[in-house]
């Protein structure tokens, strides 16, 4: 550090543009699948956690707390090495990463869904019943629209974390952006340029997500909540 004479050379990045392009595609598909499975599993977990039955609620709660406590890297590596030993089931690295990151994020999605659904004023649901709506009509027409407005900001934050967490897949040799970046920097001795590029790529992927969410959120607030 402190060496002001460092000569930046981004030519190497350009030479490796195809590798970066493939890595971006892989990171995006890893993130998309993780968000998809994480949300579906999270929705199921949140419904189980709100069940009136203790025997259903309690295991779901324990499962969510467990997943939230384990560091995601541990989960990725553990599933990669232990699943084959425990179940005799060996999965390719990419599928393992999708599984581990989906499980991990599902716990957080579950908490977002639960908080969102429980934040809806009971009186609004009673008003729906009083005009004759059944439970499922009240869910579709009142609870879900209002809850999704409220859940949008935390859901987007969670999606951003999923995109960032894809970098952990590199530990089991999934060729994501960070993993490929490290390979390239070893080959070219240009770690600073490579890491800068990786940072910029993540920025370009993530900033539109949060900006889009902010635009939608302020639109909702202006329209419905003055």
């Amino acid at each position: 550090m402190g060496d002001a004479a460092y000569q930046w050379d981004f030519q190497v990045i350009w030479d490796y543009r195809d590798v970066f392009a493939r890595a971006i595609g892989l990171t995006l598909s890893l993130a998309a699948l993780t968000i998809l499975f994480g949300m579906v599993l999270g929705l199921v977990l949140s419904l189980l956690r709100m069940s009136p039955l203790k025997v259903v609620r309690w295991p779901a709660t324990a499962w969510v707390e467990l997943l939230r406590a384990v560091p995601p890297l541990v989960l990725v590596v553990w599933i990669y090495y232990c699943l084959p030993i425990l179940l005799g089931l060996s999965m390719p690295a990419f599928q393992t990463a999708v599984l581990a990151l989906s499980l991990y994020s599902s716990a957080f999605f579950a908490e977002i869904f639960r908080a969102g659904l429980q934040s809806i004023d009971r009186g609004l649901v009673e008003a729906a019943s009083s005009v004759g709506m059944t439970r499922s009509q009240a869910l579709r027409r009142v609870v879900l629209p209002l809850a999704s407005q409220r859940m949008l900001p935390p859901l987007v934050s969670q999606c951003v974390l999923v995109v960032k967490n894809t970098a952990l897949a590199g530990y089991i040799a999934v060729a994501d952006i960070l993993y490929q970046g490290q390979q390239i920097s070893v080959q070219t001795f240009r770690p600073l340029e490579v890491l800068t590029t990786v940072a910029v790529i993540f920025l370009v992927l993530i900033v539109p997500m949060t900006m889009g969410a902010n635009v939608i959120e302020s639109h909702i607030r202006r329209k419905y909540y003055r």
């Binding site: 009186g123 609004l124 009673e126 008003a127 009083s130 004759g132 209002l146 909540y225």
Partner: peptide
């Protein structure tokens, strides 16, 4: 069907904000 024959007006209005 029965509930629709008896309308309810609440203290807190309970209008749907959306």
């Amino acid at each position: 069907r029965q509930r629709r024959r008896m309308a309810m007006v609440f203290q807190q209005f309970n209008l749907w904000p959306h």
